[in-house]
């Protein structure tokens, strides 16, 4: 049971960013991914999250080869992979309150309405968001609080895999620890596989089971 990228070549408008990259994330393990800026770490995350089409190569989810990307992939498959983006500001719709932000993935798949409130309360509590914060919009909370809301949103479907794209880079040490603890806690409960992309060697060594390097030889 794993999320695997095999022989991925990917880029934007003809500019190749990833060149023959392969990566496997087993269920229950935490994989670190590091590499200099511009080597395509975020592109690899987007490919693994089924949001960006590879030029060649393919993504396999639990031995099932995925065809297409974005909306072409059924929602039931997309929701098995959660993504936590680097900038919570850019990843949060500025019009939605934090509770709507967390509830959005559940509403999107028509989760029973009566269960959504309870689920949002539970996720917010685990993310350390107090009820008064839940009515606020993104501009009225700090980066750390917003990233915790984004994490709650990413975990709303109890995904099998969580991809964190430099998700703790912009946060202070205590929020970093909270985010990492919440992810580890979820991992222990559900056995989810986690990919942690980071520039921080200390964080990767402490948090992950193994570290993969994405260097300029694989990325051009």
């Amino acid at each position: 049971m794993s999320l695997t990228a095999s022989g991925i070549h990917a880029g934007y408008r003809g500019r190749r960013v990833l060149h023959d990259v392969s990566l496997t994330i087993e269920r229950g393990e935490t994989v670190g991914l590091r590499g200099p800026s511009g080597t395509g770490k975020s592109t690899l995350v987007r490919v693994l999250a089924l949001l960006h089409p590879p030029d060649s190569g393919h993504v396999t989810l639990d031995e099932q080869r995925i065809r297409g990307h974005g909306h072409r992939v059924p929602a039931s498959v997309r929701t098995r992979i959660g993504v936590l983006f680097q900038s919570p500001r850019a990843a949060a719709d500025p019009r939605l309150s934090l509770s709507d932000l967390i509830a959005e993935p559940l509403r999107a798949v028509r989760h029973p309405r009566e269960q959504i409130t309870g689920r949002v309360t539970d996720l917010a509590e685990r993310a350390g968001l107090t009820p008064d914060l839940l009515d606020r919009r993104p501009h009225a909370v700090s980066d750390g609080q917003l990233q915790r809301a984004c994490l709650a949103r990413a975990l709303a479907h109890d995904p099998d895999y969580l991809l964190c794209d430099e998700a703790t880079t912009m946060l202070d040490a205590s929020t970093q620890a909270h985010v990492a603890a919440m992810i580890t806690d979820q991992q222990q409960h559900t056995g989810m596989g986690v990919l942690v992309v980071s520039h921080d060697p200390a964080l990767l060594t402490r948090w992950t089971d193994r570290i993969e390097d994405l260097n300029t030889e694989t990325a051009r």
Binding site: R46, A49, L50, L51, G70, H71, A75, S76, R78, T79, I81, G82, V83, F85, S87, A90, A91, A92, D93, R95, E104, P105, A108, V109, C150, R153, A154, A156, H157
Partner: peptide, 25 residues
């Protein structure tokens, strides 16, 4: 924008992305 990626990743259909995240902006 990443919040559209987040919506797609969260299971939102094309229609929902359009009506809930694009049109209101």
């Amino acid at each position: 924008r990443p919040f559209i990626d987040a919506a797609i990743s969260g299971g939102a259909s094309r229609a929902r992305v359009l009506t809930r995240h694009l049109l209101p902006h």
